[in-house]
Design a protein around this nucleic acid. Sequence first.
DNA 1: AATTTATATTTTGTTAACAATATTGATTGA
DNA 2: TCAATCAATATTGTTAACAAAATATAAATT
Lengths: 218, 218
Amino acid sequence: MTQSDQTFQQLLDAIIKGEIQPGSRLRETELASEFGIGRGPLREALQRLESRKLVTKVPHVGAQVVDFNLPELVEIYQLRENLEGLACELAANNMTDAELDELEVLLQKHQAFVEQSSGAAYIQQDSDLDFHFKIIQCSGNSWLVQLLCDELYHRVRMYRYQSAHQKSRPARAIKEHTQIFEALRARDGELASLLMRRHISAARQNLISVATPIDSGD
Amino acid sequence: MTQSDQTFQQLLDAIIKGEIQPGSRLRETELASEFGIGRGPLREALQRLESRKLVTKVPHVGAQVVDFNLPELVEIYQLRENLEGLACELAANNMTDAELDELEVLLQKHQAFVEQSSGAAYIQQDSDLDFHFKIIQCSGNSWLVQLLCDELYHRVRMYRYQSAHQKSRPARAIKEHTQIFEALRARDGELASLLMRRHISAARQNLISVATPIDSGD
DNA sequence: AATTTATATTTTGTTAACAATATTGATTGA
DNA sequence: TCAATCAATATTGTTAACAAAATATAAATT
């Protein structure tokens, strides 16, 4: 594994978990010596973060970690709604019985996390994303997989870590996941797609209502 | 503008137009001296091409231009179908009257190209893509714009240049574009979306039938 | 002759120094 | 006191040399 790869992974993790704060300036020399590598590989790592939209770069000025931004997150959820709907349609036809079993395991694992209600919220939320990931990967469309898993989802995870206190709505999510799973098991792509779209749409609206201070009208 | 930027643009153009053949090996030293630059900026350019999926890199081995691949193109059209459908929905609400006028101009320009039926096919096809681009940009969803314009479309254009002889179906395309435009003008997002999905779906099926040798059944 | 082993060559990964640009801070003038 | 100008500093862009890995070539063995 190249140094560029390693550094990319480590920076990715640190940014998503908020260990490097949103908006931070990323100085090449500073980071390079921190990781004990030269500036070359570090620049490559930064560029890869930029292509995932976790970092913005301005020529001759520098790089900084993206800042949290509700409108942008809403945009991402709009895309998820459509793309994951499509993923369900495709997965309903493509996925094997073994894959369905694996998905069921994920669902049960998630349920267990919620019921014992222990552990940090982000564990539960990662578990939620695992369910979505699995379906996407079963779609069989490699571009769809890359777009969602490798580009949009980093941003979603970043947001979740940074607002892990808002426990979203785990019980309801599980129920919706179960419905989606059953539609997939029945190979009903149309229904699975509809349910997934509704599921993400609800999450999007929840996002807005949580982040927006209630306007009491006075 | 940095050397990395310039080189990226030039390589992008050369790859899309087929001046650098699909499957070609891209040797760093060779290209660098060809562009009269060092290997550093060249590597950055290659990396950016990789993130657009026009080049594949293997560590310690090297980079090569992606090869044409029908199943992958079909995957991309599946995504376009959904994403551009969404773009229409959003654009119907968001786009200004001025933008509608601009779109109409593009439509007429495209029509002119087809009627005079002169010029290379790829001019007509670029003109076709301009129409799609415009709508996407009017969606107001910046992630949608980037995904489509900056990632998926390079691959579409690459395919079109390399099969410019297959004149697709320009007259029909114009007719469908006109319908979509009228729906947008009427601010009917649902209809515009439906028409766009159907439009791209037809293109996808055309793609398959053109590329697949007719199975006469014997 | 075919296959393996060893060697040489090519090519990528990495570094450290240099050049160019932007930022910062001090200085000057109104 | 504030604004503008200039020098000093810090930071990115770029290059050329070196290190490590993979590929190609040649020799040796069965």
